[in-house]
């Protein structure tokens, strides 16, 4: 691994020098002047690794994913990166850019100060496979365990737009797992065996607030999804590329539903009396 990394670094340096010479000849255009960016990309696998530096020519409107592709095509053909649509619609290219969980296709190069090295690392919550790719299959395991949609018996398939506005927000989720990545319960405390994480609380919220879903997932929320582990510090909401208000609109309303069932003494007494 390290030999490859060093070779990559050397290739990076030479190509960078050549590109810099070419850059000097480019006349200043009306748009952003041609410049070079320094990317420090994590190269490595489960056995270890380090950041390798690459010089990348910057074009107008370029995003970090473009820079990674440029490195792949010119300097490191085996640089592993997961991506699909490049339009912030599929949620594949999740990584940590300068320490912040982000979609690489939405991280514009112009946002970084010239000369400032851009550090690109894989997500830290999941085991690394190689370079920028992590093993996110845990998430798919969790999803499989959520009680699926089941319509209420005899429900009429008619409802108003305002009945589904809430759930439609949750269904915007592109499953980039950045919220899972930033969530300290999963990231720092490694409670993946007890806590489903923000993505799946959003998913459960979408099911629970479906106007004709008939499944009661409140006990699941409390005991299996571990909603109590969330201390609503809102990092998930901060990183969501789809601007879903994960904490305020999904998790807190679900916490309130769990309270209704398991913590509200008056409601518990009421249910005991009425038998409902």
């Amino acid at each position: 691994m390290s030999a490859g990394a060093v070779a990559g670094a050397i290739a990076g340096a030479t190509a960078g020098a050549a590109a810099a010479a070419a850059g000097a000849r480019v006349k200043a255009e009306a748009t952003t002047a041609k410049r070079e960016a320094v990317l420090r990309v994590y190269r490595g696998d489960a056995s270890g690794g380090q950041e390798v530096e690459y010089q990348v020519p910057v074009e107008t409107g370029m995003v970090v994913l473009d820079a990674i592709h440029w490195i792949q095509a010119h300097q490191a053909p085996d640089l592993a990166v997961r991506w699909n649509c490049k339009a912030a619609k599929c949620g594949s290219c999740s990584a940590e850019v300068n320490g912040k969980p982000a979609l690489m296709c939405k991280s514009r190069m112009e946002r970084f100060a010239p000369g400032e090295p851009i550090v690109v690392r894989p997500m830290k919550t999941f085991p690394i496979i190689r370079d920028l790719v992590t093993d996110v299959s845990w998430n798919f395991e969790v999803n499989q365990r959520i009680p699926p949609f089941q319509p209420r018996a005899g429900a009429e398939w008619k409802w108003q737009q305002h009945d589904v506005d809430r759930a439609q927000e949750f269904r915007k989720c592109i499953e980039c797992f950045l919220c899972q990545d930033v969530c300290h319960v999963l990231r720092s405390h490694e409670l993946k065996h007890q806590f489903a994480g923000p993505r799946f609380l959003v998913r459960i919220a979408g099911l629970e607030m479906h106007p004709i879903d008939g499944v009661d997932r409140t006990p699941f929320l409390k005991d299996s999804a571990g909603i109590g582990f969330c201390n609503i510090t809102k990092c998930c909401t901060e990183v969501c590329p789809e601007d879903i208000h994960i904490t305020d609109n999904a998790i807190i309303p679900l916490k309130e539903r769990v309270v209704d069932r398991f913590y509200d003494p008056v409601q518990m007494v009421w249910r005991a009396i009425t038998g409902k």
Binding site: G4, D45, Q72, P77, D78, L79, A80, V81, I129, R130, D131, V133
Partner: peptide, 8 residues
């Protein structure tokens, strides 16, 4: 170049 692990 490289190995077979996630090699684009």
């Amino acid at each position: 170049e490289g190995g077979r692990t996630y090699n684009p």
